[in-house]
């Protein structure tokens, strides 16, 4: 029996889909059988980021409406043996499925996969509530910006209410030099406001955008720091203790590592 992990943020455009694609790919590369589940109905993205758009025949709504079997809708990844995508519907909207149906689907997928990574729509409305209701764990993505942190905080509060066990934090698009100039919050500040465990920090990197456009998750490229960051996040999800990346040659990052490693 596998585990369902929802990737959520409140605010839109902070990197939920990018994080889902990369974490899912990294978990698959580490030998897990993984299903990416796109619940952003009407605004599907994950298929594009994975470069699988042209293979879609059935989608999540078809499965829910029993137009096809789950297996028929699952798209096998081009690169990873054990990685599958269940795409969202593009022509419907969020009201096409309810939380009971989604909980059923997630439970079915957990029978077949080690890991179900759920890409959640932005916002805190029904689409969010549905995506969260079937999850065992949650990852909250935020950028180090006030508005994004505010929304992440709201989401953490709602997750606590939904009884999803303690959510973990990914700080995305960090720009170390901007932090140094005082133009961006540092990771310590973000973590101290949100008061949840830090799962990882992903630098802002144009390679992420480029590889997203090419439909190749960056985590497949060995060298980039962002790829390394996503791989480390995947390892921490599996319970490994991995030190935080040094995003810049700065000693103080090393000094803070110990404190950040407090996650279970």
């Amino acid at each position: 029996m596998g585990e369902a992990i929802v990737v959520t943020s409140g605010k839109g455009g902070v990197g939920k889909s990018t994080t889902s694609a990369n974490i899912g790919t990294a978990l698959a590369m580490a030998g897990k059988k993984v299903c990416l589940l796109d619940t952003d109905i009407g605004l599907r993205n994950l298929d594009v980021l994975m470069g699988l758009e042209n293979r879609i025949i059935y989608d999540i709504v078809d499965v829910i409406e029993k137009n096809c079997k789950i297996e028929q809708a699952l798209i096998k990844d081009k690169r990873c043996e054990a990685l599958y995508l269940l795409p969202a519907a593009q022509t419907k909207d969020k009201s096409a499925i309810n939380s009971k149906q989604l909980r059923w689907l997630i439970a079915e997928l957990k029978e077949k996969f080690d890991c179900v990574v759920i890409d959640c729509p932005a916002g805190i409305e029904m689409g969010f509530k549905n995506a969260v209701s079937g999850a065992d764990r949650a990852i909250v993505v935020t950028t180090p910006e006030n508005a994004s942190i505010r929304d992440a905080d709201r989401v953490v509060g709602l997750l606590e209410k939904e009884k999803v066990s303690r959510p973990k934090l990914v700080v995305n698009r960090l720009r170390p030099h901007l932090v140094r100039e005082g133009g961006m919050m540092d990771v310590d500040e973000v973590v101290s406001v949100l008061a949840i465990d830090l799962l990882g920090v992903v630098p802002d990197d144009e390679e992420v955008i480029r590889s997203g456009n090419q439909g190749e998750p960056i985590v497949l490229h060995k060298k980039s720091l962002a790829a390394q960051a996503y791989r480390n996040i995947a390892r921490r999800i599996q319970g490994e203790v991995v030190p935080l990346l040094v995003l810049e040659k700065e000693r103080k990052f090393l000094g803070r590592m110990k404190r950040w490693l407090g996650f279970a």
Partner: peptide, 23 residues
């Protein structure tokens, strides 16, 4: 922690052990 969007209502004097976040 009292997070964004949450409201803690109380009667009398209150000692909160934790943060009150923006919002």
């Amino acid at each position: 922690t009292v997070r964004s969007g949450q409201v803690l209502e109380h009667r009398g004097d209150l000692l909160l052990l934790g943060d009150v976040n923006p919002g």
